[in-house]
Amino acid sequence: MPAKIIQLKSNEEIITCFPLMQQLRPQLDQAQFLDLVTEAIKVDRYHLFALLSKENIVSVIGFKPMTTLYYGRFIWVCDLVTHVDYRSKGYGEKLLNFTESWAKDHQYTSIALSSGMQRTDAHRFYQQKMHYGKVSYVFKKDI
């Protein structure tokens, strides 16, 4: 059975990907995760998609359409994670390709994301496999 991509919209659907998302966002508990995702959907037009293989969620992507003076109309990938047992099988690539198609279908011209400094395997994936270029540093200050 081929992999399929579905959008997660309801609270029940969103919760199904929490165990996987926790591999990327271990600081969140289930209630925080659900609160943040539902707020992001309402406020920021966040979209959450899961890739299923044999009816199991093996990879998840969350993104939001944005418009800025620097990028114009673009998609910001907030979250992308593939289950540790399923990495290097093309699932992240399928979700990014799906997101590129979604962006084109909705008249967005590019995709951007940030990746933690320590995620060297992810950086190699974005640059070598998916042909993303480094265009800036992301700076953060907690307040």
Rank of each mutant, 00 (worst) to 15 (best):
H83V: 08
D85E: 15
S110T: 11
A112W: 06
S114H: 12
T82R: 06
Y108A: 11
L95K: 00
L80Q: 07
S114I: 10
I111L: 14
S114F: 01
W102C: 02
G116Y: 14
S110F: 09
S101Q: 10
E93C: 00
G92E: 06
S114R: 08
V81C: 04
F98L: 00
G90L: 02
L80V: 06
I111S: 14
K104Q: 10
S101F: 05
V81T: 02
D85L: 14
Q107G: 15
S101I: 03
E100Y: 04
L113E: 01
T109Q: 06
S115F: 01
T82I: 11
S110P: 07
F98N: 00
F98D: 00
V84D: 14
K94Q: 10
S88R: 15
D79K: 00
S88V: 15
V81P: 07
L113Q: 02
L96V: 13
Y91E: 08
E93Y: 02
F98V: 00
G92H: 02
C78M: 07
G90I: 04
V81W: 02
T82M: 10
L96P: 09
I111M: 10
H83A: 11
D85Y: 13
H106K: 06
D105S: 10
L80F: 12
Q107H: 15
S88C: 13
E100K: 06
S115K: 05
D85N: 15
D79L: 10
H106Y: 06
S88F: 13
L95P: 04
R87C: 12
R87Q: 12
S114K: 10
G90N: 00
R87S: 07
T82A: 04
K94T: 09
T82V: 13
